[in-house]
Design a protein around this nucleic acid. Structure first.
Length: 445
RNA sequence: GGAGGGGUGGCAGAGUGGUUGAAUGCACCGGUCUUGAAAACCGGCAGGGAUUCACGUCCCUCGUGGGUUCAAAUCCCACCCCCUCCGCCA
């Protein structure tokens, strides 16, 4: 099976990840902004491709115009009963040059598109500049890490007794970086999911949505996973087109792909609970212990499709929605503004929520909330009509985890553990566990 | 999996080689009328791109990609998707 797939160009010239006009008109500033996030744009290559594209496009359109005009003339001459053979011969010669021009133009545009599709989004002006997570800025801490009067265990030690968590079984049925959960652990995992969905749909105004767990390349291209990051994804063997979704962001956000929404439909607020599949290529040796980094995990995702002027405010709002989950679960966390070097490919601004893990004595990412501005919208051709009758404009897209279920489970176990290995259930979660306030490992029941 | 039918503008729906980027209806926008609204009438109304200070001019798009032709929504090929019937199936 071919490792590469031809990515269809939705519409000539507009699938670029960045607005190509900003590249043409303000190349210096764009190059500088990209450099701030560690991306070196080959500007000579871009400029030469652009120059060739322009010359070829102008020439091609001239020739097309001439062909169209003459063909119409032939039609009219024929209608008058005149001899059209000489006319035909003349246009025929024109057609040869046209064909060559069209082919050349097509090739140049393919090359240009391939280049453009691999350029990341521009960071917002106030995003801290840096090459990696070292440059991230901690904005605030919420909640206080608990003082233990015993040595807190990590979630693996807490989960192993009685088979709550079974990594060996998972290796047997699948491989490393998978887990099997049993009994109350599986139930707690489900309870967390249900709680999060209810919170977002009932308190935060999101519409619960069920989406496919397999996505086509066009969708993955739309949200920015392709063409650059195919190695991070699982492909389905029997059908070259499908990838397993690495996040519900893909299928949720792409619901508006190639749509023109009425302004009144915005903002669109959607939430979905899905499994997420990641190959974790290149993360060998990192977080090999426990649930932190798995090939398959569950997430409740929040997505908003908004008016461009609203996206900054929407991101703050969405961040609050993710925080509400941690607050309800009585988990200490901090809010981090990612630096240019640590942000994802498609993001213009990202906040991470990092939850305190007593087992690691560290804050670990449990949610990532980003504003993509028009980046994904441009790739998806997702637009809205500002006013009835006006030209469509690109929407802005926002998303965030609300929150990663597996990691929430980890945080819950480690933060609410008791000296005897049992787990205290926060008030807000108890209704989802039949009122239970304490979970005891099976071996001690 | 087998047999058949079909993909046209926001929607519905004409259109089988030539001035059709596309009739007509609905929706929508502007106007006339009305105390106001409705109705009626008049006008406008696809998306994208190139070029231009601008007006404008031009190009592309009728599921997608190729092909035939001076000329393709219309003919040919491949693929994708949808519908109906049969089979199978959670």
């Amino acid at each position: 099976m071919a490792a590469t797939v031809d990515f269809p160009v939705v519409c000539e010239r507009i699938t670029d990840m960045l607005d190509i006009r900003s590249l043409r008109q303000d190349l210096d500033a764009t190059v500088a902004a990209l450099a701030s996030r560690g991306f070196e744009l080959d500007r000579e290559r871009f400029e030469s491709l652009e120059a060739r594209r322009k010359a070829l496009q102008v020439r091609t359109q001239e020739l097309q115009n001439e062909r169209n005009t003459r063909s119409k003339g032939i039609g009219q001459a024929k209608a008058r009963g005149e001899d059209i053979e000489p006319l035909k011969a003349e246009v025929g010669r024109l057609g040869d040059e046209l064909k060559q021009c069209e082919a050349d133009l097509h090739a140049v545009q393919q090359e240009l598109d391939a280049l453009l599709m691999r350029i990341p989004n521009l960071p917002q002006k106030d995003v801290p500049v840096g090459k990696d997570e070292e440059a991230n800025v901690e904005l605030r801490r919420e909640g206080t890490p608990r003082e233990f009067d015993f040595t807190p265990r990590d979630h693996v030690d807490l989960g192993l007794p009685g088979g709550w968590l079974d990594f060996e079984a998972a290796v047997r049925v699948a491989g490393s970086r998978f887990v099997v959960m049993r009994g109350d652990m599986a139930r707690l995992h489900r309870a967390l999911t249900q709680f999060m969905l209810d919170l977002h749909t009932q308190q935060h105004g999101y519409q619960e949505t069920y989406v496919p767990y397999l996505a086509n390349p066009e969708s993955l291209e739309g949200t920015g996973q392709l063409p650059k990051f195919d190695e991070d994804l699982f492909s389905v063997d029997c059908d070259q087109r499908f990838r397993l979704i690495p996040t519900a962001e893909v299928t949720l956000t792409n619901l508006v792909r190639e749509q023109i929404l009425e302004a009144g439909a915005l903002p669109l607020k959607m939430t979905a609970h899905t499994p997420c599949f990641r190959s974790e290529a290149g993360s060998y040796g990192r977080d090999v212990r426990g649930l932190i980094r798995q090939h398959q995990f569950e997430k409740v995702e929040l997505v908003q499709v908004v008016h461009p002027e609203q996206s900054d405010a929407a991101l703050e709002e969405l961040l609050g929605h993710a925080e509400a989950v941690l607050q309800a679960l009585e988990l200490p966390y901090r809010v981090v503004l990612l630096s240019t070097g640590d942000m994802g490919f498609a993001a213009a601004r990202t906040y991470d929520l990092e939850v305190w893990l007593p087992g690691q004595q560290a804050y670990r990412e449990i949610s990532s909330c980003s504003n993509f501005e028009a980046f994904q919208a441009r790739r998806m051709q997702a637009r809205f009509r500002p006013e009835a009758g006006s030209k469509p404009e690109l929407v802005h897209t926002i998303n965030g985890s609300g929150v990663a279920v597996g990691r929430a489970l980890v945080a819950l176990l480690e933060n609410h553990q008791q000296a005897d290995g049992s787990i205290a259930i926060p008030e807000r979660l108890r209704p989802y566990l039949g009122g239970t306030s304490l979970l005891k490992p099976p071996s001690e029941q």
